[in-house]
């Protein structure tokens, strides 16, 4: 599984980081980016899906 954050949609709610800090980084202005190239280790796939389902801006997607 691989994910990405759309920087045009992300508004910095930080729900992704709260749910899966291993997969996301949030900068000082709230913008979230995926850690590394966005590849999700199998044991974190459930949490990646949770992050996708909780982002209020629909900014996270599976690629």
């Amino acid at each position: 599984m691989k994910i990405r954050v759309d920087p045009d949609k992300c508004q910095g709610h930080a729900r992704c980081y709260g749910l899966a800090p291993e997969l996301f980084e949030v900068d000082d202005y709230g913008l979230s980016t995926v850690v590394g190239d966005g590849s999700v280790p199998p044991e974190l796939e459930d949490r990646a899906r949770l992050a996708i389902a909780n982002c209020p801006e629909f900014a996270i997607e599976e690629v």
Partner: peptide, 23 residues
């Protein structure tokens, strides 16, 4: 609740700037 895309802190460009603090 696992699926909770709530907008208590707003939506779009005015998303609450203090949401981390509030939480």
């Amino acid at each position: 609740r696992a699926h909770n895309r709530h907008v208590a802190f707003g939506s779009g460009i005015h998303r609450c700037a203090g949401s981390n603090l509030a939480r």
